[in-house]
Simulated assay, not measured.
Amino acid sequence: MAEKTGTVKELAAIANVSRKSYYQWLKREVTKHELEDQAILEAIYQIEKRHQHSAGYEKVTKILNNVNGKNAGIKEFTFNFNFPINIKRVRRIMREHGIKADIRQKKHNLQRQVQQYKEDNLLKRRFDQPLPNLVWVTDTTELSYGVANKVRFHAVLDLHGRYVISYLISPTETADAAINVF
């Protein structure tokens, strides 16, 4: 497919800029800030090559500013920039050029741990009881039915005759359901 080219006037009209602005942009000088960014980018590429794409923007900023940190390998570069390098600037340059650390973030388990209470072994494996209503035990069991349906079966058992005294079927396992069985 042949590409069509147009005149500067037509292209400027498409881009919604004036011809004068286009020629000013064409002849503009590179700013000091852009030169600094280019120097920082070249240094970032060196750091990325040395650290095998595992250095994030915080570590890169420390290396560029020659900050001696705890991480091994920060002292191996000596960049002498005569201007301070901000972490926001490093992050912007890395984002603009698609530079990322190839490391996986830790996934933290956000489930809150419930405190569990461990009681003394009062029964001492004496499951045969001589009289009724001396020892009751309880249990909660999850029962599945159908494809994805589950219920919880809460029961209280008397160890003398090994019969169910009370039971409750609930859709969720809650402390209220276990207490209601009693």
Score class of each variant (00 low, 15 high):
Ile74Ser: 02
Ile99Leu: 02
Ala72Tyr: 06
Phe79Thr: 11
Arg95Asn: 06
Arg91Met: 10
Arg91Asp: 14
Gly98Trp: 01
Phe77Ala: 05
Glu76Trp: 04
Lys88Ser: 11
Ile87Asn: 08
Asn80Gln: 10
Met94Lys: 00
Ile87Met: 08
Asn80Arg: 06
Lys100Gly: 05
Gly69Cys: 09
Arg89Tyr: 00
Arg104Tyr: 14
Ile103Glu: 10
Asn71Phe: 11
Gly73Glu: 01
Ala72Asn: 08
Phe77Glu: 02
Glu96Arg: 01
Arg95Ile: 05
Lys70Val: 05
Ala101Gln: 09
His97Glu: 08
Phe77Asn: 01
Gln105Ser: 09
Glu96Pro: 06
His97Pro: 01
Phe79Asp: 12
Gly73Ile: 00
Asn82Ile: 14
Arg92Pro: 12
Met94Pro: 01
Ile103Thr: 11
His97Tyr: 03
Asn82Cys: 10
Ala72Gly: 12
Asp102Lys: 15
Ile103Asn: 09
Ile85Gly: 15
Ala72Trp: 07
Gly98Leu: 02
Asp102Asn: 13
Phe79Ser: 10
Val90Pro: 00
Lys75Glu: 02
Gly73Arg: 07
Lys100Phe: 14
Phe77Pro: 03
Arg95His: 07
Arg92Asp: 13
Ile103Met: 09
Val90Lys: 00
Ile87Phe: 09
Gln105Val: 06
Ile93His: 00
Pro84Tyr: 07
Met94Asn: 03
Asn86Glu: 01
Lys75Asp: 03
Lys70Ala: 13
Lys70Ser: 14
Met94Ser: 04
Asp102Thr: 13
Lys100Tyr: 12
Arg89His: 04
